[in-house]
Design a protein around this nucleic acid. Structure first.
Lengths: 158, 158
DNA sequence: ATGTTAATGGTAATCATTATCAATAAGGAA
DNA sequence: TTCCTTATTGATAATGATTACCATTAACAT
């Protein structure tokens, strides 16, 4: 089962946002709602289309701008999967570490987004996180493990 | 120290290539040479400019096409770092596993490319590789650990 | 040496993302 | 509540990386 999708917008964001000096606007509400109800990674255009259904006055520019803002505040992450457009997803709701894996087939260019880490793997990633903070002064908020290789289907075809 | 850059093109590729039915052409030689001598990830344009110096007849289209071919054959990997253009790097020369880490600052959008894995981390990644093969039929050729968060400089400024 | 055909490279087209800028609305102050 | 300041919006144009097209060239098998 996947705990990353369809859980609604992060609770309490309006207060947090206002505290930062940002305004809580209708487009921002809508976009966060769309992201919160997504069942998968969405592209900017998909987010725009879904937002448009809820609020037809919205503009694509605002979508991009809002996504940018949300990225900078660590609310979402941007995923570049090599298909020419980026995808976005809510981040950081899973107990301090949000990390999942992408299997990217270099042949057919499809990618599989999986989310199953073993205990060992989670432990190592947490350790790594601490190490990066100590060594590079970098605070990790989320991570993606991108694996490049060949998928099942492409192997069959050979 | 970094063992990933400046080591020259992968040995023996012409034979391997011809075996696949591809032709070994001048542009392909040049591009592989440029990639082999790179001291960092290069963008397509950088690869084009460096190739141009060695062989002015080369075209940008060929660079893109060749990079694509090399990706499909697992010779290089493409890295999308969120700056609007992709970067490329020779892959798979380090004993079966080519894996490095990117620290991507969601605030200033810079990224640091590091390459230091501990023994533990390498062991876990190798295990993960096997697990992905068993469970998903996916053969991993290389991987990148993308960490999102806040860099040292940005923290100072607050 | 020659013919077949993969590969090339100039140019035009595509398409995601950004910049511009006048109009609008969030939210603090009166 | 009403007003004011200014962050935010959205339509449109611009940008810039990547891809499509197609006539020409050059690998390399014979």
């Amino acid at each position: 089962m996947n705990h990353r999708f369809g859980k609604g917008p992060p609770k309490g964001w309006p207060g947090h946002f206002r505290g930062q000096g940002y305004r809580v606007t209708v487009p921002r509400r809508i976009i966060l709602q769309v992201l919160g109800n997504a069942e998968k990674h969405l592209s900017a255009e998909e987010i725009y289309l879904r937002s448009y259904k809820l609020y037809p006055a919205i503009g694509l520019t605002t979508v991009y701008r809002t996504l940018d803002l949300l990225i900078k505040n660590g609310v979402i992450i941007k995923i570049e999967s090599g298909e020419g457009r980026a995808r976005y997803e809510l981040a950081g709701r899973v107990e301090g570490i949000n990390c999942h894996q992408h299997l990217f087939c270099v042949n057919c260019r499809n990618f599989l987004d999986i989310s199953d880490l073993t205990e060992d793997e989670i432990a190592v990633i947490k350790k790594m996180k601490e190490r990066l903070l100590k060594k590079y002064g970098f605070t990790v908020k989320s991570c993606i493990l991108q694996f490049y290789g060949e998928c099942k289907n492409c192997k069959k075809k050979e």
